[in-house]
């Protein structure tokens, strides 16, 4: 504190110089924030040349994601009756005979219950295909053929009242299924600061 009083004078006489340097260094370090940037990018070589080029086949082998616009959906198709049959043998034990009973996640929503499920909470139909293909059945992940996944997707969307019973689900019409929940979603609006959101 006593320093502050005499600050101009001390600055003028240069008596404070070593201290200033210290402060500058400290501030500099604090502002740099970045030990996160061990080397500023301009100090990095433009390329290290590590790794090897990925071939188209390597990419195709693992590129299983499906976007809301349908990019990534494979060829194939599915129907509600076939989906219902597969569901009964491969899914019902964990999600219930009609998709509401559990024991695990409820998949079918109803008008009378607010319980979250595909029909009232999922914003995109493509997500269903993507998720079933990558992760279900829980005890045999990745075991379904693309057609089986189309069948199950058709069945579950129908069970949620989102598509007709005679639909033939494929890469062209799946992205077009209108999901009522899509309008509910909004991106994060928390920004720090005083407001609680």
């Amino acid at each position: 504190m006593y320093l502050r009083k005499n600050l101009p004078q001390q600055l003028a006489t240069g008596r404070l110089l070593p201290l200033c340097l210290l402060v500058l260094l400290a501030v500099g370090c604090a502002q740099k924030k970045d030990d996160a940037q061990p080397l500023a990018n301009k100090q990095l070589p433009s390329r290290f040349g590590f790794g090897r080029p990925a071939t188209a086949a390597q990419i195709a082998a693992v590129d299983i994601d499906v976007r809301p616009d349908g990019q990534g959906l494979p060829p194939g198709s599915g129907t509600v009756p076939e989906g219902r049959a597969i569901y009964a043998t491969k899914c019902a034990s964990c999600h219930g005979a009609t998709g509401v009973e559990g024991p695990y996640n409820r998949l079918v929503s109803s008008d009378t219950s607010r319980a979250k499920a595909i029909g009232n909470y999922w914003p995109y139909a493509t997500t269903l295909f993507d998720y079933i293909r990558r992760a279900m059945p829980f005890n045999a992940p990745g075991s379904l053929s693309n057609d089986e996944v189309y069948h199950l997707t058709a069945y579950l969307l129908h069970a949620n009242g989102l598509v007709a019973a005679d639909i033939e689900m494929n890469a062209a019409n799946l992205p077009k299924v209108v999901m009522p929940a899509e309008d509910l979603f909004f991106p994060d609006d928390r920004t720090g600061g005083a407001e609680i959101r």
Binding site: D63, R67, P68, D69, T127, D130, Y131, A135
Partner: peptide, 14 residues
């Protein structure tokens, strides 16, 4: 996979 839009996976929707 680098893109120009989110993929809307199950873990960021449901």
């Amino acid at each position: 996979e680098v893109s120009d839009q989110p993929f809307m996976t199950r873990e960021e929707t449901s």
